[in-house]
Design a protein around this nucleic acid. Sequence first.
DNA 1: TTTAACTGATACTATATTGGTATCAATTAA
DNA 2: TTAATTGATACCAATATAGTATCAGTTAAA
Lengths: 159, 159
Amino acid sequence: MVSIKQLTMKVLTKNTDYAVRALLALAKAKGSYLSAKAIATEHDIPYQFLRRLLQEMIRHNLIISKEGAQGGFMIKKDPDEITVTQLIEIFQGKVQVSECMFRKQICGNRARCVLRHEIMRIENVVQNEFEKVTIGKLLRDLEGTHQAAPSISTPESAE
Amino acid sequence: MVSIKQLTMKVLTKNTDYAVRALLALAKAKGSYLSAKAIATEHDIPYQFLRRLLQEMIRHNLIISKEGAQGGFMIKKDPDEITVTQLIEIFQGKVQVSECMFRKQICGNRARCVLRHEIMRIENVVQNEFEKVTIGKLLRDLEGTHQAAPSISTPESAE
DNA sequence: TTTAACTGATACTATATTGGTATCAATTAA
DNA sequence: TTAATTGATACCAATATAGTATCAGTTAAA
Ligand code: FES
Ligand code: FES
């Protein structure tokens, strides 16, 4: 075996995972401040880890904060304008399929490379797909799940 | 900054990169044995690293080997049947967008989850796209680049 | 006016993954 | 017999990911 350790390669890391969860909590609490501690305990996110993520999201103008007692964080940007793509880019950097495998070896100086085209095309597909998933959409799905929409045809017992 | 180190997250690792290069070399040399050393030097792949990859590919029936002096490796499987997806799975494990972010927190016991559907859909898209890229296709592109097809409309000076 | 509940900033540690090296035994052509 | 070569596997280094700790500053409220 060479490198098959986990059996899967993650495209979303904990950073993004936690950030999305936190944003959903903040979006739901829209208008009031939620403390990092509250979010952390309620959503099982390591406290200090979460704090860094929140600070990063402030820098990116997704949320704001209030210091001191009774302080906390509040969502700033419209949830429908926050895409998973953005979060991935903030916390994991741009998704790139390959910096260009083979480079010199195969392509030499030639600018034309079908493989590269394939790769770039795939990259765009991924990008576009994630672009469609916003915090607002997830929130609505989530609330739909817990409130209305009693049951959907295919129950999908998987997972 | 939280984790933006490289600015990009790779979907293809060196393993896969090198494996594809080696397979292209072997596909080109179809019918004769190429030594690991020859491949390594010709394609700038770390020798010992490459040897492990080759052994792994033997285990997966992509290539065969001959021991001893004048030995080496020879491609076994039809290049058109070797997809990049397969190589990714061998060397990086299955591509999985997320093992299921949020899990309990959000979905609880509910089997219905739109986010999960989105994620799975994206996974499938990636999988399908890579499925289309085979060693055979790459080899033909490569040979086209070096032999016929003198020039294509868009030169793409990028990279 | 002191204190406890907070965030800001940042350094640190631990673990996992990725990338690469080294070693030695076994095989085979010359 | 020897040099070229693979089989097998252990090891090491660099980087990325995940998580922890600390301390200074702010603020609501007792
Ligand atoms: S492999 Fe780099 S341009 Fe083709
Ligand atoms: S997040 Fe896991 S099923 Fe929805």
